[in-house]
């Protein structure tokens, strides 16, 4: 962890590929704001995935909000070097 900076953290997060949900794929391929005429099973799969993704995000946010503070005595983040 020595020498870990905010830039390093940003670079690390930047390498993560954006989440590609089925709904987004369908949206892009349709070139419409509200696509119509899609097979019902495909839509159901897209909605189920989106609902599950939303709930995962909500849970993550809830966990982060209750995260206890942790002393990082061995980490040097120079941007917050006060």
């Amino acid at each position: 962890m020595s020498g870990f900076t905010l830039d390093t953290l940003r670079e690390c997060l930047d390498t993560l590929a954006p989440v590609e949900l089925l709904g987004m794929t369908l949206l892009r391929s349709s070139q419409q704001l509200f696509p119509t005429g899609l097979p019902r099973n495909t839509l159901r799969e897209a909605v189920a995935e989106l609902v599950a993704y939303t709930e995962r995000c909500a849970k993550t946010v809830a966990q982060l909000m209750t995260l206890p503070p942790m002393a990082l005595t061995a980490v040097s983040v120079v941007e917050y070097g006060l």
Partner: peptide
């Protein structure tokens, strides 16, 4: 924006 549009569309 794509994610936002997806949410408005499907959920």
């Amino acid at each position: 924006f794509c994610l936002t549009n997806t949410v408005v569309w499907l959920d």
